[in-house]
């Protein structure tokens, strides 16, 4: 199960990267980046998972004394929580820039932006 989750996460990263590299439309590149973002998050959470253990919440199901034997690693989860929120901030920023590019140049095709080409 953990191997499968890791494999799916990496496959999503690759799919997002391939999509971002081959598409010409800026919006489609941003969509591909969000897919890669999700893939990275899955890999990080899968690394913290352990067989037969439960979520790191100390309620009635997990007595405090047994916590060390019953819960999974909470640290990757805290990091991924941060990563998801920052991911939305980055996506919103990219979308705002894409909108500005569209309103100045009238297109979203990256091959039309030739000011820096020589």
């Amino acid at each position: 199960m953990i191997t499968l989750s890791l494999a799916v996460g990496f496959a999503l990263v690759l799919a997002g990267l391939y999509g971002a590299l081959t598409n010409r439309n800026i919006l489609r590149m941003i969509v591909s980046f969000t897919v890669a973002d999700t893939g990275v998050n899955i890999v990080l959470v899968a690394v913290g998972w352990m067989r037969g253990r439960t979520a790191p919440i100390l309620d009635d199901a997990v007595p405090i004394a047994e916590a060390a034997q019953r819960i999974i690693d909470p640290l990757p989860q805290a990091l991924v929580l941060t990563a998801i929120v920052i991911g939305l901030g980055v996506t919103a920023l990219m979308l705002a820039y894409a909108y500005r590019l569209y309103s100045t140049a009238g297109t979203l095709d990256v091959s039309k932006f030739t000011e820096l080409k020589w």
């Binding site: 998050n41 999974i72 998801i84 991911g87």
Partner: peptide, 21 residues
């Protein structure tokens, strides 16, 4: 994968707000 906190965040932010943006 036993991460309810991350699941909630991903459902609310990753799939909800991002799609609408």
């Amino acid at each position: 994968l036993a991460s309810p906190d991350v699941a909630m965040t991903e459902a609310a932010i990753g799939s909800g707000l991002t799609t609408f943006l």
